[in-house]
Write a protein that binds this DNA or RNA. Structure first.
Length: 242
DNA sequence: AATGCGTGCAACCGCGGCAAA
DNA sequence: CTTTGCCGCGGTTGCACGCAT
């Protein structure tokens, strides 16, 4: 069932923003703060839809935006985060102060993709391009880390089974298969280590299967992959290394 | 100088999640 | 429980610009 349009399109401007529109938007947000994007255009005297205003503000007008070229450090961080999170641009942006998801997404598509391809790395999987595909049905969280990246990112693995002896690519992909008959979910000794159960780690802390019970969804300061409030704290991931 | 092509980026579109009614 | 509406996200589009021919 379709949704009603977010605004009256017949009476809204589209396309590039004018200086005057920018000024109005900035002035309004400085006076009233962000929020209620739907009603903002009218209140600010703009013939734009709320989504357009939000996008303009977040991606272009916000005072804390860095703008300018990405540094090599930012490049590498984006690559690492993308290998962990996939196209979760907003999460990646959360780790890059002053950068927006849209900016990072564009930068990825225009620069980093090419950079990885020139290194012989598939930007989707972060594997070498000529490496044969793995024949397992998976749900991808956006790719895998190469061993070097694993080590440097703090995801070093202890092999518990001979098959893992060589520490193959740390794979954040989930295999779809019948439950592995752990009577209870595969808890990763979560509580004493301040970590999350399998379900919480998938962002399913509200699931009845969740065994963390760290206090009624505790607003868990921790989150998927150790993110705090939706922001991946890369340093946290490192500290959880054994 | 004119034209075509490729690239980069701002903005739009459609959908999912979530909360309120 | 269902419906409705807003917000935010990711994918895509389209325009402006620079460069090559």
């Amino acid at each position: 069932m379709g949704r009603s349009p977010c605004c009256e399109k017949a009476h809204t401007n589209k396309g590039a923003w004018t200086k005057e529109e920018d000024d109005r938007l900035i002035a309004h947000i400085q006076a009233h703060g962000e929020g209620c994007w739907r009603s903002l255009p009218k209140a600010a005297g703009l013939l734009r839809c709320g989504k357009s205003c939000r996008l303009r503000w977040i991606n272009y007008l916000r005072p804390d935006l860095k703008r300018g070229n990405f540094t090599d450090e930012e490049d590498e961080l984006i690559i690492k985060l993308h290998s962990l999170l996939g196209n979760k641009w907003s999460l990646i942006a959360g780790r890059l102060p002053g950068r927006t998801d849209n900016e990072i997404k564009n930068y990825w598509n225009t620069h980093i993709r090419r950079k990885l391809l020139s290194r012989g790395i598939d930007p989707l999987t972060h594997r070498p391009i000529n490496e044969p595909a793995v024949d397992v049905a998976t749900v991808s969280f956006g790719g895998v880390l190469k061993k070097e990246e694993v080590m440097s990112s703090g995801f070093g693995c202890k092999s518990r089974n001979p098959d893992e002896e060589n520490c193959p690519d740390l794979n954040l992909e989930l295999r779809i298969s019948p439950p592995h008959h752990h009577p209870s979910p595969p808890v990763v000794d979560s509580r004493e280590r301040g970590m999350l159960c399998f379900y919480c780690s998938l962002g399913l802390e509200k699931s009845k299967e969740c065994s963390c019970s760290s206090g009624s969804g505790n607003g868990s300061s921790d989150d998927f992959l150790g993110m705090k409030n939706g922001v991946l704290d890369y340093r946290n991931l490192e500290m959880k290394r054994d």
